[in-house]
């Protein structure tokens, strides 16, 4: 069953302005991850904004669990779709648990505050990302990776079927990039969550696929999807050249008996170095 369904979606900020994306359609089923890939400024975040209801489509429909998001109030959308931001600007040093409790806003009246039950839900969410021990720390003192896990915990506390992530591993170090990816895999496997995420790392989608999650990649190019499909099919040297103007090599090596590790390695930008030099380099 498809949880999230986008049909013929078009958007521009004003009627007369150029469209950011046009006539985009896709579906995501339960327990699947949908990855948006494309260069900076191609409209990934704008598409995510439309799914979140921050902006509204000019044409087309977005349905979540069969309901048109246009007809839902912000409090209702927040019970279907949660959001993990790309970079969260930390202003006030709230305690970690207070941040996660904010995930319960959609279930809490305007003039009341989270109940004891909400607090339990928040603690469980922290358990899922393994940060319960930090719950009383000011979240401004956490590292970038821990901060991102707190954002994921907050989204989990929202108890939604869908989580939208905007480049969840941006600005993270080598280890924490992995920690966040492992957390996502664990969550999708254990809770049947549906994830829509924008990413700048094609290799992450291989990672998800290798971990047995149904992963779909959409390459966003010139307002449309260039190609949609599983990572192995879509992520090839030809498409990378079209999408990013980057020459790549697809490297593979067997990881164990059943899985093959795949990596797209960038070699040069298309107009960066001369053809012969590049060939020499690759050789």
């Amino acid at each position: 069953m498809s949880i999230l369904q986008v049909t013929n979606a078009s958007f521009s900020y004003e009627q007369h302005l150029e469209k950011i994306f046009e006539d985009i359609s896709f579906e995501v089923g339960q327990g699947e991850i949908f990855c948006l890939l494309g260069p900076n400024g191609c409209g990934k975040s704008t598409l995510l904004d439309n799914i979140l209801g921050v902006n509204h489509l000019q044409q087309g429909k977005i349905r979540v669990m069969g309901r048109d998001t246009r007809t839902l109030k912000s409090g209702e959308i927040a019970r279907y779709i949660a959001y993990v931001p790309q970079s969260h600007e930390r202003t006030f040093p709230y305690q970690v648990i207070d941040i996660v409790k904010m995930g319960r806003a959609a279930y809490t009246g305007r003039f009341s505050s989270p109940s004891a039950e909400d607090k339990e839900i928040a603690k469980e969410a922290l358990d899922l990302v393994g940060l319960r021990h930090l719950r009383h720390r000011p979240y401004t003192q956490l590292s970038g990776g821990e901060g991102q896990l707190v954002m994921i915990a907050r989204a989990l506390a929202q108890k939604t079927p869908v989580i939208v992530m905007d480049e969840p591993t941006a600005h993270l170090d080598f280890k924490h990039e992995m920690v966040v990816m492992e957390t996502i895999v664990k969550l999708v496997k254990n809770t049947d969550l549906t994830v829509v995420m924008a990413t700048h790392f094609p290799n992450h989608t291989f990672y998800l696929e290798n971990n047995g999650i149904k992963t779909t990649v959409a390459l966003m190019h010139n307002k449309h999807f260039l190609e949609v499909g599983n990572p192995t099919k879509v992520l090839n040297e030809h498409n990378m050249r079209t999408l990013y103007n980057v020459n790549t090599k697809l490297m593979t090596c067997p990881l164990d008996t059943s899985t093959v590790l795949k990596q797209l390695v960038p070699v040069s930008t298309l107009n960066g170095i001369k053809e012969e030099e590049r060939n020499a380099y690759v050789r």
């Binding site: 209801g53 921050v54 912000s74 409090g75 207070d98 959609a106 505050s113 907050r154």
Partner: peptide, 20 residues
């Protein structure tokens, strides 16, 4: 007053957390 906590997360996040 608790909603002010949520509003202090910024417009986009507050919206996605369910705030009008």
């Amino acid at each position: 007053r608790w909603r002010i906590n949520v509003l202090s997360m910024g417009d986009r996040e507050a919206h996605s957390l369910g705030v009008n």
